[in-house]
Design a protein around this nucleic acid. Structure first.
Length: 589
RNA sequence: GUCCCCGUAGCUCAGCCGGAUAGAGCGCCGGAUUCCUAAUCCGGAGGCCACAGGUUCAAAUCCUGUCGGGGACGCCA
């Protein structure tokens, strides 16, 4: 909770304790009746039953105990025992002043229990272009990494690429068909191989679907790919060298899409990097008698007493003796535990994989790598079109992420130009830059403002609008403050002591005060939409304040200096908040 | 069949560790510009919170069931 919320909560907790009641009843939160109160406490109602007392009587006792303390201006009892709290203008002014000068945290505070975390998101595949589903894991994961770091957690992010499956076999064999003369296909050759990749990203995105289609109705073709995978796993040098080229070329392409979205990773590891751990891991698990043979495969049973649903077993090795999705995920856990000793590992992966992760997490605990409760699957819903069905191209195919970002960019540029509001002296380079920032803001905010776990409808026209609850609206407000403060500085208007006198100012500072709580909840629940909600409220409160008052043109010098200082407080928190969402505002637009 | 998520204003979504007249954006209606960007702001209309039971002083929120939508369920990842 924010500065004021914290102070009040502590005061009320002491009040309840002194009255012989549970101090947790002193929970204070923003009032949902702004015309009646700034904050409210409902503890008297909740405590009445346990204490077998009249709630109004308790409320009266608490109100008398806390009146006059700290930031409290008044406490009134309403209805059956609601405690309505007003804070003093002075306390609000101090809060705003503190947020203004707190350039690091803007009123938020570091957590008391910082953790070492591995954040697994991205999940891009080699050779397969990213699609709309990758947008979600990218922006949710990236926002969480920004927020968690900001609050003091030690975060290591890993894209965990899909670089080890059958698709690699498809690529190898299909490339062999096209260019059989390449040295990589000489089984006897151990190296060295050319440093220049034999394929481009365009080659890869052509070869994979090509091979995949052939393998679909030709079992022999599929077998060749499986064979290639097996040989690659066994260490065939030419195939390993090709794999590395495929990975390098893919990463280069991925960085373009991620760069556009402002998404970054500490580690660009993948399934293949867990692979060296697999043989010993499997042998060890077998040796300890934790796995058993079943239908020719090696499995780890993960069902438990009291389960209310069926748990299929964890697949350690399939009946051909090959490692699988489960295996590489478990090996990755082992690697991460050994390398980073994390307190927790977080996976930002599609909700549909919930059962998979339950199996993996149980297996990880069974084999003793890490306890299940330190592994979290942060699932997310699907991106749907305006028809409510999964988002597709007009032709019905999967929409590539790159195409989506281009659509957003076109739409953003269109809206910027058709508004005709950019001043004429903004040149083409700056216009292009503004278009990119608007498109990024539109995409990221659109995705993040929705509850993580649910599906949402993707409506590009709505998301790129400058009106409404959108990224571009946030940008507009941020730019507006920047321009205002820049102009004020040019005219020699400086900030001064903050005075809180109007409803718009009160509302604005109370919103500022909620930043800390919003971040806390975003962390606790791993839910970025809570932060989005706060940042949007802040932008809106500012817009209302801006509409209600003169700022730089205010005649009263003290008032002018106060309002400029308040704007600086807002600018500070808004910029930090936007940055945590991964949105950057241009200097002007 | 078992299990998971969802069903809130015309549309898109918040709220869900129970609390006072259920919020926001879009759309609709009506206002505001000699004043720092009106890409804005202010006001209004609009909801038996899918349905039925139950728990409670109090239920959109908790429990049970029904209906409707989405999803997962051993050798793909």
């Amino acid at each position: 909770m924010g500065h004021l919320g914290n102070e009040l909560g502590a005061i009320f907790a002491r009040g309840f304790e002194a009255a012989g009641l549970d101090p947790r009843l002193g929970d204070v939160r923003r009032s949902d009746k702004p015309d009646m109160a700034d904050f409210q406490c409902n503890g008297a109602l909740a405590g009445a039953k346990a204490a077998k007392r009249n709630p109004r009587e308790i409320a009266t006792q608490i109100a008398e105990a806390v009146t006059g303390q700290g930031p409290i201006a008044s406490v009134e009892i309403a209805g059956p025992g609601f405690l309505n709290i007003r804070v003093t203008d002075d306390a609000l002014a101090r809060t705003a002043a503190a947020i203004r000068t707190d350039t690091n945290m803007a009123g938020a505070s570091k957590v008391a229990d910082p953790q070492t975390l591995i954040l697994d998101f991205g999940g891009a595949n080699v050779a397969k272009p990213m699609h709309v589903g990758h947008l979600r894991t990218a922006v949710i994961g990236d926002t969480l990494q920004r927020v968690l770091r900001f609050l003091g957690d030690q975060v290591t992010s890993d894209i965990h690429m899909g670089d080890w499956g059958l698709q690699m076999g498809h690529l190898i064999t299909e490339l062999e068909d096209e260019q059989p003369g390449l040295p990589y296909f000489d089984a006897a050759k151990t190296g060295p191989f050319p440093r220049q990749s034999p394929v481009t990203i365009d080659d890869l995105s052509r070869l994979y679907p090509q091979a995949s289609a052939k393998a679909k109705d030709d079992p022999e073709r599929n077998k060749r790919s499986q064979q290639a995978v097996a040989e690659m796993q066994a260490g065939r040098a030419g195939y390993r060298a090709l794999l590395q080229h495929f990975v390098d070329v893919s990463i280069k392409a991925l960085k373009i899409d991620y760069g556009f979205l402002g998404v970054s990773f500490d580690l660009w590891l993948g399934e293949k990097d867990a692979e060296p751990f697999i043989p010993d891991m499997v042998a060890d698990i077998k040796a300890r008698g934790l796995a058993k043979e079943d239908d020719g495969a090696w499995i780890i049973p993960v069902e438990r007493e009291g389960d209310t649903k069926d748990y299929p077993p964890f697949m350690l090795l399939n009946s051909r003796g090959a490692s699988m999705y489960h295996t590489s995920d478990l090996a990755t856990i082992l690697d991460r535990v050994q390398t980073y000793s994390p307190d927790r590992m977080l996976y930002v992966v599609d909700q549909r994989q919930a059962l998979h992760f339950e199996q993996v997490f149980r297996a990880a605990e069974i084999v003793g790598y890490i306890s299940e409760d330190r592994l979290e699957h942060l699932g997310f819903g699907t991106v749907n079109g305006t028809d409510g069905k999964p988002f597709k191209t007009r032709a019905g195919g999967t929409l590539k992420l790159g195409d989506l970002t281009n659509m957003a960019l076109d739409e953003a540029n269109k809206k910027i130009e058709e508004g005709g509001r950019l001043s004429a002296d903004i040149g083409p380079d700056e216009r292009a830059r503004i278009g990119q920032l608007v498109a990024r803001a539109a995409l990221r905010f659109a995705d993040l403002q929705n509850t993580r776990t649910t599906n949402y409808v993707f409506d590009l026209d709505r998301f790129t609008s400058f009106e409404g609850k959108t990224g571009p609206y946030l940008l507009y407000q941020a730019v507006r403050i920047k321009s205002l403060l820049r102009k004020a500085a040019d005219e020699g208007n400086v900030a001064g002591d903050i005075r809180i006198e109007s409803d718009a100012e009160r509302a604005l500072v109370l919103t500022l005060d909620g930043f800390s709580l919003a971040l806390q909840q975003t962390r606790d629940k791993r839910m970025p939409h809570i932060l989005c909600e706060h940042v949007y409220n802040l932008a809106q409160s500012f817009a209302a304040f801006y509409g209600a008052h003169k700022i730089a043109s205010e005649d009263d010098a003290d008032l002018r200096a106060s309002r400029i200082a308040l704007c600086q407080a807002v600018a500070n928190q808004l910029n930090i908040g936007l940055d945590l969402i991964g949105i950057e505002a241009p200097e002007r637009m």
